[in-house]
Design a binder for these strands. Structure first.
Lengths: 357, 357
DNA sequence: ATTTATGGTGTGTGCGTACACATTTTTTAA
DNA sequence: TTAAAAAATGTGTACGCACACACCATAAAT
């Protein structure tokens, strides 16, 4: 049970530790027979390199660039950032630094500028939220060519290159949304899918959410009428209010709204006062959302673990860079159903600092 | 931004690294002035010891003893064990070994024997599931006296000594259970709390669950009649069946059963065939429970993150032993509401291997 | 003058990395 | 055929950073 070191291997194989080292890293310059002998002995003795000693000796810094929307513009993105900071703490001693690059969620140009800047500084790895599909594809192409590993969070992008996608299963989260909004609905109710702030065309994950949501009703409650609406100018309460007014008139049996982004609270802020009670299901534990949940104005929130997305993204790249371990291509995070009784437990993101083997 | 080492400190303070080391570990034998000067310089330069080098140099093994119910007797306990294994992987290179001690969940004597055995081997820390309240208190006393740090999982025990409790908030999980079982209930329904397999007297967490559950109805639906039942011999389907028959007769409006342990599936296995549909809310994603969830025979499961309890328990002790960081006294894990649409995401416990800073 | 604190230095150790260097084998050229 | 050059193997060891113990100084106490 004693730990096996390269010294042990070298001794048993009758070579020097330098040779063992070259076998391990196939730095070449080793006779095939010797190489085989060493490998066999390693297997036999169950050698596992000591990651501490390894990292200590390696003695090089590496940089991970994070390319994400600016939290100052959309508060949601403060949460992945929190996870990134936790990750940073966790990997600091392993010689990994994180360099953050922000772009404006609502402005493609800033995205392009930002990723160019990031690439220029030759990071060893990239953590990316590929909000803009087309432009992100470009970035992937560049990264592939420069051999910079990438992990994606938040938005799934069909592409072979990235090491991993970490985030939610959009379709399934739509489907779940359907289930949640349906509780206690009358047979003939109408339900609105509201894309608030992002148009679904360049955002495939919103499309998939929609699809999942609709499919739930098709399969489970076909009599309920589901329709989609888009509204971009969410920061203008007046306009949002009149938009809602209009929808209420248009759909007199409207009984539920499923808001596909994290901005459910905006809807409630702007909701016509006179209106009857309408069930709201939204995403993410933003402060304002939670307030409304507690006030019973939001029925359910679906939590997509934004903090964890950041954390796991960093840890995944770390695993790749330092441990050289393979990473799962797709890491779906749980879709937490959040109600008054359990929101607190999701809020405190004191996810204990953890570690790799 | 360059990392600061003790060498830098020593240089700047005009002393040797040995002296700096003695200041850090207050091993004594350092002049007060020197000590102050060194400390000041450390703060000024922002010294943080490199945990890799530190651990590597420390070069001692430590043992964590886990004292938990045998998974062969109750499958639930396989899940914390899984998390413990993950934790073991994560801390191996830090010189921490885990030694597992099992006891029989249904036999106090085995618990006493087991913990005595564990103590005899002088572990450096203990992870404990204090199923038996009184006897666990004894163990805590011994541990305190021998200065062995302890973390508790699964069952909260009022006591100052343990470093931390990691698990669910029982009261709140009862309250949530109330909320879940109430969806779609008729005004005058009857609801049963069923303690299946454990009597609630020596198990305070079950009592708290009950209380939370009852309180939910008192506050939100006082007309619904809630009553408690205990049944111990759950592995005898016949007896369980007749027990259920009897309850169904006794409570003709019985519309929901809240099973406080992880054995909801046993109830369904033994449920009278002829009976009308009754809503079931249970705990934990055991295979059989999930099967029934998918078949729509269980309405909701509450997941209490058993895998994570094991994992975090180990990581907490690691943090204490190696990082010497303080740990939160109470770490409540989320109460996940599990339905067909999201169970999969909780199932795969490929929680990525993670790391400490 | 000798013991005993007290303050402080020097260095081997843990384990893997990576480079400089030494040795052997193979290839090339005369 | 032989010397020289090049390639292939292999060895030795100085790192990285913190730890901890052996060992000097010096001053104070006996």
């Amino acid at each position: 049970m004693k730990k096996v070191t390269i010294k042990d291997i070298a001794l048993k194989a009758g070579v020097s530790i330098g040779t063992v080292d070259r076998v391990i890293h196939n730095r070449g310059k080793v006779n095939k027979n010797v190489s085989k002998r060493v490998t066999d002995i390693m297997n036999e003795l169950g050698y596992r390199k000591n990651i501490l000693a390894s990292t200590l000796a390696f003695n090089k810094k590496r940089t991970i660039a994070t390319i994400l929307p600016d939290p100052k513009i959309d508060p949601y993105w403060g949460q992945p950032d929190l996870g990134i900071n936790q990750g940073q703490d966790a990997v600091r001693d392993f010689g990994i630094q994180i360099k953050k690059y922000w772009f404006n969620l609502f402005d493609v140009e800033t995205f392009i500028d930002t990723y160019k800047k990031a690439i220029d500084e030759k990071p060893d790895a990239i953590l990316l939220a590929p909000i803009f599909a087309k432009e992100s594809k470009n970035l992937l192409k560049i990264a592939k060519q420069k051999k910079i590993p990438i992990i994606l969070i938040n938005t799934h992008l069909e592409d072979d290159y990235p090491l991993s996608y970490i985030g939610q299963d959009s379709y399934q989260s739509g489907y779940l949304g359907g289930r949640l909004i349906r509780f206690g609905l009358k047979k003939k109710a109408q339900v609105m899918i509201l894309n608030l702030g992002e148009r679904s065309k360049n955002a495939k994950h919103l499309l998939r959410k929609e699809q999942g949501f609709k499919d739930f009703f098709i399969k489970n409650a076909p009599k309920i009428e589901v329709f989609t609406a888009n509204f971009f100018d969410f920061d203008n309460p007046k306009k949002l209010n009149s938009f809602l007014e209009q929808k209420l008139q248009e759909y007199p049996n409207l009984a539920g709204i499923y808001i596909t982004t994290s901005r459910a609270y905006k809807v409630i802020d702007a909701f016509p006062k006179h209106s009857k009670k309408i069930k709201i299901v939204g995403f993410d534990l933003l402060e304002q959302n939670v307030d409304y949940l507690v006030q019973n104005k939001i029925s359910f929130l679906i939590n997509q673990h934004p903090v964890e997305q950041g954390y796991k993204g960093i840890m995944g790249l770390f695993k790749h860079l330092v441990m050289k371990e393979p990473i799962e291509k797709t890491q779906y995070l749980p879709l937490d159903i959040v109600v008054i009784e359990n929101y607190k437990f999701y809020l405190e993101n004191k996810q204990p600092v953890e570690m790799i083997r």
